[in-house]
Design a protein around this nucleic acid. Sequence first.
DNA 1: GTGAAAGCGCTAACAG
DNA 2: CTGTTAGCGCTTTCAC
Lengths: 336, 336
Amino acid sequence: MATIGQIAAELGLSKSTVSRALRGVPGIAQETVALVREAADRLDYVPSVAAAGLSTGRNQAVGIVVPSLTRWFYSEVVSGITRTLAAHGYDAVLFDLDRSHVGENRPFARSLLRRRVDAVIVVATVFAPDELAELGLLDIPMVAVGPPTPGLRNIGVNDADIMGTATAHMLDLGHRTIGLVGGYDAESLTIFGASEREHAFMRTVMQTGAVVEPTWMLSGGYRSGMAKMVVSHLYRSSSWPTALVCASDEMAFGALFAIHEAGLRVPDDVSVIGIDGHENAAAYDLTTCEQDAQGQGALAASQVIAELEGAPAPDAFDPAPFRLIVRGSTAEPRVR
Amino acid sequence: MATIGQIAAELGLSKSTVSRALRGVPGIAQETVALVREAADRLDYVPSVAAAGLSTGRNQAVGIVVPSLTRWFYSEVVSGITRTLAAHGYDAVLFDLDRSHVGENRPFARSLLRRRVDAVIVVATVFAPDELAELGLLDIPMVAVGPPTPGLRNIGVNDADIMGTATAHMLDLGHRTIGLVGGYDAESLTIFGASEREHAFMRTVMQTGAVVEPTWMLSGGYRSGMAKMVVSHLYRSSSWPTALVCASDEMAFGALFAIHEAGLRVPDDVSVIGIDGHENAAAYDLTTCEQDAQGQGALAASQVIAELEGAPAPDAFDPAPFRLIVRGSTAEPRVR
DNA sequence: GTGAAAGCGCTAACAG
DNA sequence: CTGTTAGCGCTTTCAC
């Protein structure tokens, strides 16, 4: 593997000149630059981040902490992050906390602390106080994507607003018996966002004078399969709501399935709305509140990169946008 | 940030002694080791991978190349990899090729080449010849997970076998009109595995003397939504198969949905089988050929780590195991 | 059992 | 516009 020194020797130049030429630092003759570049290509030169990092203190890498990759939303966010990082020449170091539990002294900290990354992006992860303290020690740009995360600035939709919009859509259509498929994601443990959503649901429903039926508040664990089970159970009972608000599209898919399986029709018998804007929502004709997961990841990445380059670090970010996409899964309640 | 030198100064020892004590190199007095460890903790010492890497040539990191994270199977594999890496003290550098196309000179190579990783694991990705050449230059352990990948050793199920087993299950039940939901994943472009599966399907069906109806060979793009669409279309036509073999569970979910939506029943009217062992398969009562995605990722990680530590590098790996899990989505065809 | 010294590949003043 | 000289923080002979 060629080094900067070999190129220098080959060309009778000094290492510094070669280094500058390679990095495009101004103040080097055009022809010298060309010469160096040519030699570098010819010798298959590849820079060593380790060496560069040692002298500059920069690793050209950012850490991504994620509780699980199997939830569609998270993987979208991660895609958005990695793409943006790549575009700016940064590498992504992935810390998948999958199945670990808060406080179990998850291993990322030690590793993160190895001074491998210049910044950290945390996706929908809740930390124990000591973990947070350890992260704080890093003293590098750090932002969260997803629901509010204690101790971190976050980029994400306003959970109350998005749920309020979804619920209001059902109320506007005239539904007065509305169920919720919520609960929280056992892996991500982002209980804050989840309970924000549940409260917003109740608040919105109650504002119209409608009643929130406790047995219609289902816990779908943010997974399609679990949502299917609980919804199946509900629609096998004698009294069920004409509308179902789901805190995620994946759960909505499970709900749709369960409703069909129960021999009922969407939206004739039951209306269903989701939240997220999942790639399959259109195919399932699912009304949803769409947010841009990739965009949020991309924004987080741009932000930490900017801060790395000296941009100011705001204390908070504007809530991410979302919009209601009305499709065929919601309609006015049929007069029964 | 404390360095090895500061600890040495603090204790009146030399840097080499501290280094050895910290790494547990034999030949250091017990008490010295204890002293050093204590001081390191007290000073919040964190080793610098860059510095260590510079002198040893090792980064304690492995690269993961993946075409997309939004397909469930891939994210499971990645989880398996990262968990294993973490357990062995390695970091994961993620290269998400999402949406890029073969030959578009995807950016991973340059980055990977920055000597940042000690090994590479490629998940279901097909490379252009020049990309492969560039990867070859790296000269580090490299294995693929998923379908066979030209130019790389791979860990994965035998596509023909798993599809053969799924198809045979339908034939064994007595089905003679069988459709396939296959196609290939536009993002991963692992056409090899996909076409292996299609061929195995045809071969198996034809062995019983049954006919493969061209219009029953559907292309679901390995996505639930797309599968739902094509299956819907098929079951709206006048002639449809009593059994549907899906090349992935995600597509099977779409198929199940479409069948219900068409007013037909599973398994009374149509039997459906998937491949993968998706986390939601049980909830949807889906018969499937289950493989251990996480396990395959974990195995790949263990393997490259072993090779990094001097273990021999086999030319090929045994095919990964899978097993048929019969659930309620398949049954004997009803006599019509 | 411990220390001194050299060096990994690069960047960054400081000169010229 | 280019070269010299120090390091960055760690590992690794080679001595003692």
